[in-house]
Design a protein around this nucleic acid. Structure first.
Length: 505
RNA sequence: GGCGGCAUGGCCAAGUGGUAAGGCAGAGGAUUGCAAAUCCUUUACCCCCAGUUCGAAUCUGGGUGCCGCCUCCA
């Protein structure tokens, strides 16, 4: 499928090349995205990853594909059990709570909910069936209640991560051999099923009570939800090995078919040049950042300014720059609401404002200039989702609209009339359309985050004093009042017509 | 040690053979009693060395630096 004559090209980790994207079934795309292990809140690394894949999904829809997007929850895992033990609750309680938090966080970031979100604990039949098939094919062996995948029996193991078992062995065998290690035939063998340990929840199986290993759940859920071969498999670059390598081995050993045709991986979010991670303690949760006053769209813009495969350094400076940049785009996008007074986002509740992505509008109705901008956008996105270049198009589309919006805000009647012109409306329409492909939407100005300092009536009284001083051309007194309030975190903004607005800093 | 990736202006970041997008910050100007906001204009030869080429940030070789994976991780 093409638009404007070009073809979407994506970097496929499997081949380490940029390849033209052609789905298995023309017009339809099946996508599986590795989800979170729900033992804690999501941090900015998750935000970056899921924003990137949300944009991929939105772009495919815009290009006219019918997309089926599946993302799992890993809701059985050592870390969940540890967390439950720490807080004296249960695996289910920890999972449930974090799934709710995940849904809320994603909604705030305007990430479209997946079409289906399977959970490991609800996919046990598919998991057990897959393990049995692997056993029957001689690809797995059981040992003391555990079942392992035999990597040496699977030709092609290592094809995704570029690893060679024979070269890895020396190094790998030098590891500390714990109890589990001792049961393995090869150091790279991994658990498909883990026999129950005292005090742990377990599920029945032909190998005795226990629970699934991490990798097998994805293989099982992919197959159950989307079939033996899917178009695109997504995840963070840190999942390439061993997770995705093992997923491929399991699935392909069982089905004899290719698991996924395109493997896409996003780069990590770094802090001070190092990967954001729990173990380093350098993480910021999505909700902590958003609750600190950073707007969801600012975070979205911040992540989309870099290419999805590259590492993204998280710094306060870069985030500030994104916030200022977003202000400009936001002003232009707000033109519609400003002109029509439509309350489409007046409630400020971001969760209720998911703008559905529409397939691309007819570019034939656009002026030559707008058609060219649209084409630039599509060409950028076709080039392995070059969102940085695509954003440049948005900024250029927004520029004159932003100027109009600012003039209107100051009561410029001519600007208000200009905004209703067919040219301005067409430009705004295209901007909104392309912004929605990136999941960017107008945001209302943030409400004051603090109520510290003088109360409203005291401030109003001082503003009246200052107004009187100004009327007497006593600017020294007027400025003194401004400075005093500023010291208390109150900023005064003089507007046309003698009005003075104020904000709490 | 093995595998992979990255090095572009003060900061972030596009750009894979023809003479450097965009954002932020800065500078100059307009406007404003001041301030904020806004508007206009403006700022780079691309880590180092050697090669290929009429021509390279862009290709090749070497070097230096940084990062990720090899254990759970988006």
């Amino acid at each position: 499928m093409t638009a404007g004559g070009s073809t979407l090209r994506l970097t496929n980790t499997l081949t380490r090349r940029v390849e033209p994207f052609e789905p298995l079934t023309p017009g339809q795309v099946s996508i599986y995205c590795c989800g979170v292990t729900v033992y804690d809140l999501c941090h900015l690394g998750h935000a970056r990853s899921y924003i990137a894949w949300d944009v991929l999904r939105r772009y495919l829809i815009w290009r006219g594909y019918q997309v089926t997007f599946v993302q799992n929850y890993t809701d059985i895992d050592d870390k969940i059990l540890n967390r439950a033990a720490e807080e004296g609750s249960s695996m289910e309680a920890v999972s449930e709570r974090n799934i709710e938090a995940f849904v809320a966080d994603m909604a705030r970031l305007n990430i479209l909910p997946a079409d289906r979100m399977p959970r490991a604990t609800r996919s046990l039949d598919a998991i057990r069936l897959l393990i049995q098939e692997l056993e029957a094919r001689g690809a797995a062996y059981s040992a003391d209640g555990d079942v392992y995948f035999a990597v040496m029996k699977h030709a092609g193991y290592g094809k995704l991560s570029g690893r060679d078992l024979s070269e890895q062995q020396d190094n790998a065998s030098g590891r500390v051999a714990d109890e589990e290690e001792a049961r393995k035939q090869h150091p790279f063998d991994f658990a498909l099923w883990k026999g129950v340990k005292p005090g742990e929840p377990s599920f029945p199986s032909p190998w005795g009570p226990g629970r699934p290993g991490w990798h097998i759940e994805c293989s099982a859920m992919v197959r159950e939800e989307l079939g033996d071969t899917i178009d695109i498999h997504l995840g963070g670059a840190d999942l390439i090995f061993p997770h995705h390598e093992n997923e491929i081995a399991q699935s392909e050993a069982a089905t004899g078919k290719e698991l996924a045709r395109y493997w896409l991986h996003n780069g990590m979010v770094n802090v001070g040049g190092q990967k954001m991670s729990k173990s380093l303690g350098n993480f910021t949760t999505i909700r902590a950042l958003l609750d600190s006053g950073v707007s969801p769209m600012t975070l979205r813009l911040f992540t989309l300014q870099a290419h999805y495969r590259k590492p993204l350094d998280f710094t306060a400076e870069a985030l500030d720059a994104a916030a200022t940049g977003w202000k400009g785009l936001n002003a232009a996008l707000g033109l519609a609401a400003l002109r029509e007074g439509e309350p489409n986002s007046a409630d400020g509740d971001t969760a209720s404002q998911v703008i559905p992505v529409q397939p691309s509008s007819d570019p034939g109705s656009l002026s030559p200039e707008l058609a060219q901008e649209r084409e630039r956008f599509a060409a950028a996105m076709d080039d392995d989702l070059n969102t940085s270049a695509a954003l440049a198009v948005l900024f250029e589309l927004a520029k004159p609209l932003r100027a109009l919006a600012n003039r209107i805000e100051r009561g410029d009647q001519a600007a208000a009339a200009e905004a209703t012109s067919p040219e301005a409306q067409a430009r705004l329409g295209l901007l909104q359309e392309l912004a929605s492909v990136l999941g960017l939407r107008h945001e209302q100005a943030a409400a004051p985050t603090t109520t510290d300092g003088p109360d409203d009536t005291a401030i109003e009284a001082l503003i009246e004093q200052r107004k009187a001083a100004k009327a007497n051309r006593d600017f020294a007194s007027a400025d003194r009042i401004r400075d005093e309030l500023k010291a208390k975190g109150i900023e005064l903004i003089d507007k046309p017509g003698g009005l003075t607005e104020w904000l709490r800093g």
